[in-house]
């Protein structure tokens, strides 16, 4: 049954996932095409100087992409479920409801993680040619928060989709907006170093909102 649910999620989201993968690939390619040109014209020393002296990690063009990717995937996955109350049918399948929601969420989070890991891997591979491990680690530590925003974007938009009433949806929207603002408070590299694990725990805890929405739906709350 788990395999069937995964297949259903794959059918729903494959084109969205393909589109996200294409945008991720294109942005990454564009970013490194630019950096390659800079190195060709001005030399790799400029990358060192910029990374050391300025508040940049050279890959800022990728900053908001994970959050958009997460939100888009959540819409592709849950909008079909709430249209014409198909969620009711899904919840009536002979499978524990909690586990079903968990499988659906795990499918998307894993898909996003694979995409983000691939992108981070490509970044690391390209940059290793030009900069030492210490500067590369600085870039990846900074990008980790961007990827966290991808997970947060997915979980909050999913929760908004599954919540049956507008009153509660507005409250969740306030929390989502506040949290995403927090993840993009400053562009300074490594600004979130000491706080990352707290944010990660918070994002994981935000998954409980999905279960709250489903429970309220089952209890008959609706506008």
């Amino acid at each position: 049954m788990t395999r069937m649910i995964l297949y259903k999620e794959w059918l729903k989201t494959r084109w969205t996932l393909a589109g996200i993968a294409a945008v991720v690939a294109a942005l990454t390619f564009y970013c490194f095409l630019n950096l390659g040109k800079v190195v060709e014209i001005r030399g790799a020393a400029l990358l060192w100087e910029t990374l050391v002296a300025k508040d940049t990690v050279l890959t800022e063009i990728l900053r908001y992409m994970p959050a958009f990717a997460g939100a888009l995937l959540a819409l592709a996955q849950f909008v079909p479920e709430i249209q014409h109350k198909r969620l009711k049918l899904t919840l009536h399948l002979p499978y524990p409801q909690g586990r079903m929601l968990l499988v659906m969420v795990a499918f998307s989070l894993l898909s996003l993680t694979v995409l983000f890991a691939l992108q981070a891997g490509v970044c690391a591979l390209c940059l290793t040619r030009w900069i030492p491990a210490e500067l590369l680690a600085r870039i990846l530590r900074t990008m980790a928060v961007w990827y966290l925003s991808g997970w947060a974007g997915y979980l909050f938009v999913s929760a908004l989709c599954l919540e049956p009433t507008w009153r509660m949806r507005v409250l969740e929207l306030l929390v989502a907006a506040g949290f995403l603002r927090l993840l993009f408070l400053t562009p300074v590299p490594e600004a979130y170093n000491g706080f990352f694990w707290v944010l990660l725990l918070y994002v994981m805890a935000s998954g409980s909102l999905l279960f709250l929405g489903v429970a309220r739906f089952k209890e008959g709350y609706q506008d």
Partner: peptide, 21 residues
């Protein structure tokens, strides 16, 4: 999970208020 969701939302709203106000 429903209770955790409620607690999470309430705590988050309280933190948001303490930050924005």
């Amino acid at each position: 999970m429903k209770t955790i969701g409620k607690i999470f939302l309430s705590l988050s709203l309280a933190l948001l208020f303490c930050w924005v106000a």
